[in-house]
Design a protein around this nucleic acid. Sequence first.
DNA 1: AACGGAATATGACAAATATCAATTTGTCCT
DNA 2: AGGACAAATTGATATTTGTCATATTCCGTT
Lengths: 258, 258
Amino acid sequence: MAPSRSSVVPLSKRKIACKDCSLFQICLPVGISEEELERLEKIIQRRRPVKRGDHLYNSGDPFRSICAVRSGSIKSYVPTEKGNEQVTGFHLPGELLGLDAISQKIHPCSAKALETTSVCEIPYEQFELLSNELPVLHRQLINLMSKEIFEEETHMVLLGKKSAEERLAAYLFSISMRYQRRGFSATEYYLSMSRNDIGNYLGLAVETVSRMFTRFQDDGLLTVERKHIIIHNLDRLRHLAGAMPCKSGGNSFCLTRS
Amino acid sequence: MAPSRSSVVPLSKRKIACKDCSLFQICLPVGISEEELERLEKIIQRRRPVKRGDHLYNSGDPFRSICAVRSGSIKSYVPTEKGNEQVTGFHLPGELLGLDAISQKIHPCSAKALETTSVCEIPYEQFELLSNELPVLHRQLINLMSKEIFEEETHMVLLGKKSAEERLAAYLFSISMRYQRRGFSATEYYLSMSRNDIGNYLGLAVETVSRMFTRFQDDGLLTVERKHIIIHNLDRLRHLAGAMPCKSGGNSFCLTRS
DNA sequence: AACGGAATATGACAAATATCAATTTGTCCT
DNA sequence: AGGACAAATTGATATTTGTCATATTCCGTT
């Protein structure tokens, strides 16, 4: 049975130059020159795909490089005593991870592949050297980090203020938007993470997540079959997600319910 | 006249050069040369103190500069419909704010003074220009942002996993450490924020915060009289705060209960 | 293909914390 | 200094969500 991700290409089989990579505009600075791009490409490493369950790095590992997901997905989490853990984020194609380790030079989180996943690595020392000559690289990293800080604030609002229903709705809506941005369907996808991981990330018990999925389905909001999600009413989903910081029409931020 | 930090000096009355400022090692890159420092100083602006309740900026305002608290304290929050808000952080002397606005060029949060507060501003455009010549400035900013991302992950663990008791303990312990780092007492201080703000930040109702303060006091852990806090057993407080990411003795991160 | 363990789903119940209400205390302003 | 409003505390009750138990389905492994 064929995965319905429109045209599936075995990404892992091909060596792709950065400028041909679909993650181009996300990973790389806008307005970079051809020559600058070549120099950046030289230091980017493409690891061979990691298998489901494998770790990209572990909590406590020395920080060596920033990673960008090319395909697949990664879960970041802080391990705690006796197998407990707190999931701190999921990383979809085009998204970075490891930015929390730059300052301490040690990874505070572990990163585990949720499925077969391929990743680009940018060795940080070399990136630093290159940035001395190309400040635009530094600037792009700062922008991406600022965005991450903003997104973590959004998640703080979720954890601090939202009900279980709002949390799951906001989560699904966020996944939708992130897939959409990458050119995938916003209304139909496979969730690569378990209910356990979702609950953990959202500060909910697994059972609560399960019940909310059931409720959403009973309400006709979506169809869910294990990991396969079809959203029938994205607008209602956003509405259910409750207030979230977003750019309003003009130049100001606001909190809307729709 | 030598301003010693313990004897209270009307800080707001004096123009202080960066290199004489007590926030020196926090605001500024280590290993910066005398000449580089002078150039940075030229672009740093010292606003006259803002009064309690005044806003440094509002959600939706255009982003112009990064702010550093010199004295006093600031609350960051995302305003929501009808006066509701989510507090996203408190900023004590030596700490930065506004890093979440760099990417969008618009402040997603509002920033309000909790008491009379003086602030340094670094106009971001000028900072960018200067950074082209002094990459060390960019590097320092990246480090500070990485630290902030890590700290927000820590707060995510608090909101996602901890009980009310653990949350308040973790909060007080965090304040203690931050004051200690600035050379103030870790065990006695005035909380400039209201119970409401604390509860909001911790994802708890005001009443719950109040009850936890009472419980801590009944347990002999601390003495609390409105905003005045005396902690009698910092170690037990840390223990009550539950697991938190921290550097262990060696080179690895771990989650300890003490 | 069969087995076994893991993930998911669902129901019954318990517990933590929110909500509501009332009181006290403190602080700001005239 | 007095008065009014805001903040904090405390108690009683409600509600949401977590926990425990059980059933079911799925997936990977032999």
